[in-house]
Design a protein around this nucleic acid. Structure first.
Lengths: 228, 228
DNA sequence: AACATAAGAATCGTTGAACAATTCGACAAG
DNA sequence: CTTGTCGAATTGTTCAACGATTCTTATGTT
């Protein structure tokens, strides 16, 4: 009975949060994540409102939500645009990742089996997707890997920050020509990292993560095409 | 010519970012910060809209903004309320602070003189305010201290996260009966911490920060009165 | 008196229309 | 080629309306 109540309490969250604005935000978030909306693209209030059959006011509330998540950029009197990340943005994102994921690894000594299982699952899925050449899925699994890695901190707020951060990163992926060259090299290193954590070699894991993020950042900035 | 362009590019930021909704959000943020709105209080769309002379739609956009900053809580069909933090919220905030400020201190070895000056200024102001018994100001200076400490990370995103976090913490301060007993003990420790950083004793500074945050959290949770 | 129930008031959620303010592109004038 | 002007298109903001949900209060039953 106790566990049922807990499960229901978890589902409860989905009930209350059903305002039209938030549902619209969810939809748009997904469309941005999967690349239907390209970075730099303008999102017209009128046309999107017409397609989704919501009023402009409601749509604007949704835009505010996503603007605060840094997925949309609000320019006064000009509308909202899908965010275009600069090289400095990428650098800053990796700065934050080093802090949050670094802290997570440092706490990796006392990792719960459940948390470790989630991390491992993401790794194996990334490997499977890589073997079959589904590079888009490799990227997704990779994001899940880092998300569950950051979860070792045990902080809802850090989880949320991490979620936003990785959603921003996806914006960069979509302007890359060759996703394979970026994602492929890191599948093996994910596995290496999780083994270091599992065996309790915290210091080594920390160093591995450091070089991991350094390499990823450099590769990303290099493959990145800033707008003219 | 080059430097003029750079200066103008800097000023550019002030042009675009003034929409009524955001200005309203700024006002409400201040009123929440200074305690004019008490945690748990409901913010009526109609009455506040009437006073500020903005339409309900504009006000709702502002509410969305502050909701995303966790200062307001949005309950469907019931309105927005000033956030009431639970004990778990406080614990989580300190979890994040340990991560962010810890990373900042760890990078404290290569601190720029300008950044150090900002930190010191906050410390001296806190001391001055404490000497004169202005405990509200002590709290404000203390927040500035930790904000500029976190800035050692050199990350705009972490600065923003920290700003939000400390704004949330202020919500707790406002339901405390005796602000003096909370703020007073930490003025001296601020000074101690900054001296450790300045002299490059990173490991000691890290330990000092750790115990600092532990003590503050415990004191805060103890002095905290959760709602029935 | 205590409790459940139902009517009513208040407030939110959402829509649609309207108008002012601003941007942008085209086109003419210098 | 630059500058100024006009007009179309889009956003910013307000207003009024109505259904939906919650809160309050009065009513009636046990």
């Amino acid at each position: 009975m106790e566990d049922v109540a807990a499960a229901l309490r978890h589902d409860r969250g989905r009930l209350g949060r059903s305002s039209t604005a938030e549902k619209v935000a969810d939809i748009l978030r997904d469309r941005i994540a999967d690349g239907s909306f390209v970075p730099g693209e303008r999102l017209s209030e009128e046309s999107i409102g017409a397609v989704l059959e919501v009023s402009r006011n409601t749509l604007r509330e949704a835009f505010r939500l996503l603007g605060h998540e840094r997925l949309l950029e609000h320019r006064l009197n000009r509308g909202v645009f899908v965010r275009v990340l600069s090289a400095e943005d990428v650098a800053d994102i990796y700065r934050v990742r080093r802090v949050i994921e670094g802290a997570a690894v440092r706490q990796g000594a006392n990792v719960t089996p459940a948390a470790l299982a989630m991390i491992k699952e993401a790794v194996t899925e990334a490997s499977a997707a890589a073997r079959e050449g589904r590079w888009q899925d490799v990227g997704t699994a990779n994001i899940r890997f880092h998300q569950s890695l950051a979860a070792l901190n045990g902080s809802p707020r850090l989880n949320e920050t991490m979620r936003q951060l990785l959603a921003e990163l996806r914006l960069v992926f979509h302007v890359m020509r060759n996703p394979r060259s970026f994602h492929e090299p890191f599948v093996a290193r994910n596995l290496e990292l999780v083994e270091l954590i599992e065996s309790g070699r915290t210091a080594e894991a920390e160093r591995a993560l450091e070089s991991y993020l350094n390499d990823a950042e450099e590769l990303l900035v290099r493959a990145y095409i800033p707008e003219p």
